[in-house]
Design a protein around this nucleic acid. Structure first.
Lengths: 229, 229
DNA sequence: CGACGATTTGAAATCAGTCAAGAGCAGTGG
DNA sequence: CCACTGCTCTTGACTGATTTCAAATCGTCG
């Protein structure tokens, strides 16, 4: 592939293997996908609402968030992506982006033309099924997120989000389950849990007063996992 | 098919055609899907959280909601489905249901074995692509929903929901755009917009005081569409 | 050091929730 | 046709969680 090493998409293969079997031909077909490796700076957009993207991105390093704005400028973050995530098929397949995808820090990603993905899809339906599967899991995380935002109070919301992070970072091998570095500012956290930055600050304070977490700067140490849940 | 008339799945064909071309073979393959037509009473569950469904449902008449509960019993509604919607693939393909699907009133639905859908998927990748497409559109509505719940105030939330209804009911041919019958109680509305039933009642009052809507019992008449938006 | 962004803190205001009671409206059975 | 029952909806007074505004402090990076 044009990224030069042929292994850039291993992260994707690994991710898809979670959901079902990939035979050797499937794997080969994925590796054969044309793709361009790119570095993006913190804060830059992979996709903007209203774009008509013709590539989909696989995240190799760094974090990205998906978010959307209301008419009067309030932001809601929907999900956070890390290594291996197929960040952008939603937008690409729909041919019209309904939300933004933005880099939280400096990131690396492989960009794959949608046309190649669609072709792969008809040649290797099995791979398509697993990718679909991937978007469905995404949707499931999403529903949990919405439940969180809609029906829990501030402390529970944040606790929930911190647990989700712990879990996913650990699973992706980017931090210990009980001790990790938070990749976002409190303002971004606020946009994720639908609160004000001010209140996020207070709630974090309260969580650590209660002894559930301890934090120094951006690193979180969960001191009472069960309590936090 | 075993529903006896061979046209029960026309609603599905019509829906999928929105997203791309179905050739004659594709259509035939859809119609050939094995399916069982069933009537369900108001309030009954098509799927429950934790189920391991092996069928997916296509709604023929009536309304259904998807929802989920928090640990302490608060409900969040995620979406409302009407005729033609492929209500349940999310759960079926994932083999484990993360949320409930419940009938809002008496409904009719065709139940199709997931195995048949997966088979269809490898024989006719194009149909699979369109079904995937369908789930992505679903996800898009979802994001809008989350934005609504997370970042708008009570009046705007409800206004938004009422507009969405108007639009979708109209599109499905179940009501005029500015005048329709609301299929849910205020308590269910409250669960959809993440408010209390009491507050929903007040907000509806306020919307009609401002002259945006007029309502008698369950029928809504939108008197100022632009204002409402 | 200086500057800028991120976080913290306090006091006051507001939106939405809670509790409790009453009104409206089917549907049932006598 | 009426009384009874069970829902859904409405209203009022009160409470409480979260937001708002504004100012101070902390941290990081050039």
């Amino acid at each position: 592939m044009s990224t030069g090493n042929g292994h850039a998409l291993d992260a994707l293969v690994a991710k898809l293997s979670h959901w079902g079997e990939l035979d050797a031909d499937d794997e080969a077909a994925i590796h054969a996908l044309p793709g361009t490796l790119r570095q993006l700076k913190k804060g830059s957009y992979i996709t903007r609402e209203g774009d008509r993207p013709d590539v989909a991105a696989v995240l190799l390093s760094g974090f990205a968030i998906r978010h959307k704005l209301t008419g009067n400028g309030e932001r809601q973050v929907f999900s956070i992506h890390m290594r291996g995530d197929l960040v952008d098929i939603h937008n690409s397949l729909l041919k019209w982006s309904d939300h933004n995808v933005q880099a939280l820090n400096d990131i690396e990603a492989v960009f794959i033309p949608v046309s190649a993905i669609i072709r792969l899809f008809s040649e290797r339906p099995n791979v398509g099924l697993l990718m679909w599967h991937e978007t469905l899991v995404d949707g499931s995380i999403f529903r949990e997120w919405t439940l969180n935002v809609g029906r829990r109070d501030a402390r529970t919301r944040l606790a929930h989000l911190l647990c989700e992070f712990a879990f996913r970072l650990h699973k992706t091998g980017l931090g210990k389950k009980l001790h990790y570095e938070l990749p976002m500012t409190q303002e971004q956290l606020a946009d994720a849990v639908a609160l004000t930055p001010v209140h996020v600050s207070r709630v974090i304070r309260s969580l650590s007063d209660y002894g559930y977490i301890a934090k120094t700067n951006r690193t979180i140490l969960i001191t009472d996992w069960d309590g936090l849940r």
